[in-house]
Design a binder for these strands. Sequence first.
DNA 1: ATGAAAGCGCTAACAT
DNA 2: ATGTTAGCGCTTTCAT
Lengths: 342, 342
Amino acid sequence: MKKRVTIQDLAKELNTTPSTVSRALRDLPGISEAMKEAVRELAKKYDYQPNAIASGLRSGKSNTLGVIVPRVNRDFFSSVISGIEDVVFEAGYNVIICQTHDRLEKEQQYINTLLNGRVDGILVSLGLETREHCHFEKVVEAGISLIFFDRVCEEMDVTKIMIDDFDGSFKAVSHLVKMGYNRIAHFGGPDFLNVYRNRKDGYIRALEKSNLKIDERIIIQNDLTVEAGKRDAERLMKMDNPPDAIFSASDYSALGALLYLKEKTYEIPDQIGVVGFSNEKFTSLIDPGLTSVDQHSDELGKYCAELFLEEVNRGAGNFVPRKIILNPKLLIRRSSQRKVKI
Amino acid sequence: MKKRVTIQDLAKELNTTPSTVSRALRDLPGISEAMKEAVRELAKKYDYQPNAIASGLRSGKSNTLGVIVPRVNRDFFSSVISGIEDVVFEAGYNVIICQTHDRLEKEQQYINTLLNGRVDGILVSLGLETREHCHFEKVVEAGISLIFFDRVCEEMDVTKIMIDDFDGSFKAVSHLVKMGYNRIAHFGGPDFLNVYRNRKDGYIRALEKSNLKIDERIIIQNDLTVEAGKRDAERLMKMDNPPDAIFSASDYSALGALLYLKEKTYEIPDQIGVVGFSNEKFTSLIDPGLTSVDQHSDELGKYCAELFLEEVNRGAGNFVPRKIILNPKLLIRRSSQRKVKI
DNA sequence: ATGAAAGCGCTAACAT
DNA sequence: ATGTTAGCGCTTTCAT
């Protein structure tokens, strides 16, 4: 194992001092070109690797960013992380990932280790268990930039970025109406989560605007899995007055419905239309393609990263916390494009 | 912004010295229980957060691990990362993620920043462009534990962990043969990557073992995308003597084939069987379900993390580099289960 | 059982 | 344009 060469070693060999070498390496003014050149050359010769830890200790900056999510292996989160990483890498930051598995305790532990590691910022998407936020208060008190994305903590006065779930639903359902469907069912999630509440509200508002009747019997709350989708699609289709379209708050239960309907040889989209939410990768891969609401996960990550960079560059306190709401995009695929219109 | 309390502050308030406090906090022997208790209490009172950077500088350990992958938002890699993160978190390590987008230059840059950051280990899955490895030599020279997973660098004498691609292919093709298919085509990737070479070899060996003819015309190398799968499935089916099954080294090109075949109303699996590789999430969601080879991504990540922990605990040099090959599992779904056997 | 002192490698304030 | 000095917060000898 080679001994690592330090700034002092370089200084000694050049008969100068560590500070000069340090300044030369960072190309600061007040050092002659000749010296800078000599330093750079020697650094290269010895393959000098600056010690980021030492530099971090001295400067109080670790050039590191923590990202806390429920799980990294989900299309949405991994895309957000990918977007974040791409942006901050260019600015010289490293990304530490933390997955909470939706557990409050892990969320708290991660906050502590990130604080101990003196990260320059923390980006968080909340876990399902999180109802309190004193662990996040500590981040703010430490003067570290804190940003929430997607699953945000409404009570905290920090920057948040999310998509407009209401608008996504509204667009999806309006599209179905335009395609001539007029008895549209809804699969939703638990009402205590704002995402699902907003998606349901968007659905209702779109129906109201089109003067369509809201029928509670075809508004179904389930756990949004493929199986739930199958089961509830069956339930719907066996009603006296079955729907002619299903709008699901999740691609997975939409898929379940789609699979059930295909099995029963319903014509999709002509007999019945299906729309999902999230634009999971598989939606474009199945047959027929599933119309879905895209959450711009990659852009969300990039935007989030840019907000972080802006905050650190301005310094804590010189930045007005903001709430940013991205408009989702409806991706119209075959599952909802009925040829026979009204 | 609150001033951070240091070990010195605690020492002063207790009329003792930093070293005593440090030892007490780490529960080292040679400190009275009374003192330890007092220190812990005060630390709690002030919510003392140890400065990991300072500790890292002094001890030469950052308790951080770098993971370099081509892309984080792919089912396989994100699952591996998830597995790694779960294991090392328990051991007190942070995970820095790095995505190369298959670019050699980024791979080299990441190696440098990780070395600068004095990480305790680096886990890598190679990018497509990587043909040289001097950037990895630097890691070994620095005495930092280096482990390759999945896409490994054969030339380097370090620990590698991968799945047995040959075996996966062999199982997949043997299964097709057992199902009565006897003219099996193959979609493969670039030969210079161990994974694709091995998958092709396994395919050939399985055919040989069943005394089936190897026909170079139905062994196709493409870029393994959905589009390539569609295009090449079309090409195959338009041959004078088309195959009755397709084994693809990637789920994506298998899907492309499947979509093309369905469009042309071929009966799957009765007329033609399709098998993919990787067990991407969508394979179980489409219709018919796509038979695929599961790579145990989560376990691979966990195993990888355990190897890393073992290496750091033993210290560089006290560890024999090894090659670990996990047996993949064939997940048989409908796309290959022909009812009419030989 | 505790303290004193040195230093990890770098940066920044203050000289010259 | 360069050098001197001090110190970031912790850990680790070596004393006592």
